[in-house]
Write a protein that binds this DNA or RNA. Sequence first.
DNA 1: GTGAAAGCGCTAACAC
DNA 2: GTGTTAGCGCTTTCAC
Lengths: 344, 344
Amino acid sequence: MASARVTLPQVAARAGVSLGSASRALNGNGASPAMVARVQAAARELGYQPDATGRSLRLRRTFQIAFAVADIGNPVYVEMLTAIQEVVAERGYRLVVATTGSTTGSTIEMVQGLSSGLVDGLVISPLRVDAALVTELRAASMPVVVIGRTLAGEAFDAVSTDSARGIGQAVAHVLGLGRRRLGFLNGPLDTTPGEARQRGFDLAVGREDYPGDSVDSEVAEDFTVTAGLVGARALLARNLARGAGLDAIVAANDLLAIGAIKAARELGLRVPQDVAVTGMDDTEIGKVFAPTLTSVSLRSSERGRAAAELLLSRLEEPGRDARRVFVEPALEVRESTLDAGGAA
Amino acid sequence: MASARVTLPQVAARAGVSLGSASRALNGNGASPAMVARVQAAARELGYQPDATGRSLRLRRTFQIAFAVADIGNPVYVEMLTAIQEVVAERGYRLVVATTGSTTGSTIEMVQGLSSGLVDGLVISPLRVDAALVTELRAASMPVVVIGRTLAGEAFDAVSTDSARGIGQAVAHVLGLGRRRLGFLNGPLDTTPGEARQRGFDLAVGREDYPGDSVDSEVAEDFTVTAGLVGARALLARNLARGAGLDAIVAANDLLAIGAIKAARELGLRVPQDVAVTGMDDTEIGKVFAPTLTSVSLRSSERGRAAAELLLSRLEEPGRDARRVFVEPALEVRESTLDAGGAA
DNA sequence: GTGAAAGCGCTAACAC
DNA sequence: GTGTTAGCGCTTTCAC
């Protein structure tokens, strides 16, 4: 610490020029080569570091971007964070991490707190959305990019995917393997992803030509391994009591899927031979798990990158129409649904 | 977006009071109750949101803290990040994430970039440290808290642990299980953790009374699962070629340990029956892996929390002596070293 | 307790 | 092309 700050007037004095000239010289705005050389030399000698606060106040820009999520512990958000950080850092912006809490109320508070000119824009991936939050986001004094669905049509720049369709892909995959007794392990239904994924499952198993024999769903308390373990125990036990038990579990994310595998093993079931298990999000943890996890990729890095780019482009062109980026889900087949290394 | 910013003079005008009074009223600095009521009412009516930039310029504080790491993808850093974020948010600070890159040169650049009054303090966990970086950190215009070792004795507030000793605990544990042919799977030796952990291993197996039969080390290219897989293949193959092969692998972190388990399985070895495997960092991924991973906890959350508290206390009391917090490593025994559910 | 005024560090508009 | 000056929004003296 220490080292009293050097200000621009000091640099100007050292170089024997005016404050304005020093500023122009350092920012490359119409100064003579000689001037630039003198000022830069003075700045170097004094160890001048421009003050971000003064600059921001004058320019009305902070070169900071915020990324807001409910829980940065979740691997999906970490992936997004990494991607966003890369994109914005490259363009000279810094990333501020904001935690929203899990309710819309606490999210609204966070958005308000950010509306103090502290950041130039916001990328938010809300777990739960209601009208009040949408209103708050629309009223925010900065551009907002939403990752996920909102109720608000074309109001925001947004990047979204079709996780319902992704669940459909997972269902089709296990049906293709010959599995006929399916269980769906979901997270809370009052969340945006929980709702969409349930819809996807119900749709996939509700078709006229659905070839499966039985269908059951269980809602875990949270999108975590622990909650998945508890939920899957109930799901498996219930279906075992009813008859032949499940031969496939489709989980709403990778963490729930890992919980499901653990629950299956507790009952002496082999994965994938007795029960095939699929996840969603295609996280690193699923790739290294044993068995490696079949998972529907929602391309979190790509979504993060797209969101960051959307925001930066909006900052350059504030008036443009809202833009939406869609990312296709893609099933990644791995060991947790493949017997003996064979394909489906 | 949109919604033109409301400024304090506007609030003052609306309330029919002076600018200074409005400021005092809102900040609770000696204003009459009547004044406070009037100004607050005006602020509410206009939707006043104080401008962080103007405030920061005047106060010379931003209420922002930076956390700098080489790679936010690493679960250890995510744990620290979460803990730091919690502590600082509670005290009204925001967290800025900064990526250092893996070299000391790029780290120095990052520290310089942050030395622009943008943040009030810095928590940094550098992977590599040299004299130039230490100099830069000492010269920084803000308080710095280091997580990990530096070359700089008592110069910084710091939180550290003894990972060398932690490796010793892992070695003692597998020896206690009766394992006698030990392999050490480390990450790059020119990193602070790599160096310390190698030292710990060499010390543990170099004792007079060391009961083991053979010892070997392998250095992976990085602290990742992929690098661990490659390194462990070499380590296992080499020792198999020499004789009976390894019966225990001590890995320098959990990701390397997971790579080692995968490599062992490729060779048809069972974990833990044929080869016991230990990790370090006690990450979430190790806890949910199958088998669950025996790991030396370095209490990342606790270190993050301690670092944040050290920094906040330094901001309150800039002149105080540098303080160091030590966190003891602790072995967490799980399935990857336990045969048949029995204890050691 | 309140109003008036200065000034944090910077950039840009304005003269010359 | 350069110097001078105003002012971004805020807090905190300084008078009264």
